[in-house]
Design a protein around this nucleic acid. Structure first.
Lengths: 181, 181
DNA sequence: GTTGATCTGTTCACTAATTAACAAATCCAG
DNA sequence: CTGGATTTGTTAATTAGTGAACAGATCAAC
């Protein structure tokens, strides 16, 4: 990641926070560029220096989180699944406003699909159906099974406003994944 | 107040918040310009565009609050003292980090003096020692008496972390002032 | 439909913030 | 005291953000 001018980081950060805060109040379609300008305290014209429109802003916000998660996957590649899941859960926890907005029902179905795609993408090639417990299974079926399960649990966690701590979530989900991978 | 460029407001705001946050952690003398730059997320050189040094920053922060209070005095000139004090108390409440830092023991004695001077300045000329309950008193004595009392109560309030709501504070202090003015 | 108002996307000249570099001052271990 | 490391204050060249203005699109109420 190249070094980015501090002003750019600040503006984009402010806009990403602003759109999340506004989405907590109203539908994305009802959010105007002026709303974003006011909330982020950034000139209206400045928004167009970075994003084509509000949808582009949301897309890039989503993509940045997917990329962060991809990075976490790499750095946790040789950990056991409980430890790896804990790292994920910590990321969820420290970005609660985003994931809560996107996954707790009210959010954007767009993100749910994007997230599921990402999980499938990450699992593909990681599974071995030629030996062990998964011998004889069709890889695509297994991948879809695990990814859906994982996403479902995370959705449940946010929809119910974190009924267990992120540590417990990681331990339970990690164990379940271990059983299937 | 002339229209100020949004960037100027943002950097000054960030720096004022930063110095307050840092003063909660360490002595003003131990705070470096680099600390301010990091905390405010503002380039080090930018700080010198606005302030001569960290003391100047603190001075201007103090002066801006004094000016706000002076404005509140004007706009509340023809209210009764309980109502006027309520307006003050609301300002204290919504700028808690600043006043708490400055008045709750640990703070800067510099501000205490500046604040007392301001109270004296505001009271001078407002009092009538030629008739009524204060007939025969020396104005300077009366001014010093009231200002010290008012400041003392406010200090107590912040030092004890707001043991009563700001509404109660205003009602009590307003009544006491009424009795002496 | 026609109006008036708001929102959009884009342009332009101006100003503020940025990075990097620098010498001088200050601090602090040895 | 002395040398190395930090901090300071300033500079210059570059880039990003600003506010204002604009025409066109969209929307709602009448």
């Amino acid at each position: 990641m190249a070094k980015v001018d501090r002003r750019i980081r600040k503006t984009q950060e402010a806009l990403k926070n602003a759109i999340l805060e506004l989405m907590a109040q109203k539908n994305l379609d009802d959010i105007t560029i002026q709303d974003l300008s006011d909330k982020a305290n950034v000139s209206r014209g400045t928004i167009y220096l970075h994003y084509a429109d509000k949808f582009d802003l949301l897309d890039k916000l989503i993509e940045s989180h997917i990329n962060e998660l991809r990075g976490l996957c790499e750095s946790a590649a040789d950990l056991d699944l409980v430890s790896a899941t804990l790292i994920w859960a910590e990321y969820f926890e420290s970005n609660y406003p985003f994931f809560s907005m996107m996954l707790a029902s009210r959010g954007a179905p767009h993100f749910r699909n994007r997230f599921l795609d990402f999980l499938v993408e990450e699992l593909k090639g990681e599974l071995d159906v030629t030996k062990g417990k998964n011998q004889g299974l069709v890889e695509d079926v297994l991948v879809q099974f695990i990814a859906s399960a994982q996403l479902g649990v995370v959705e449940w966690w946010f929809s119910h406003e974190r009924p267990v701590t992120h540590q417990v979530l990681a331990e339970q989900l990690g164990t379940l994944l271990e059983r299937n991978i």
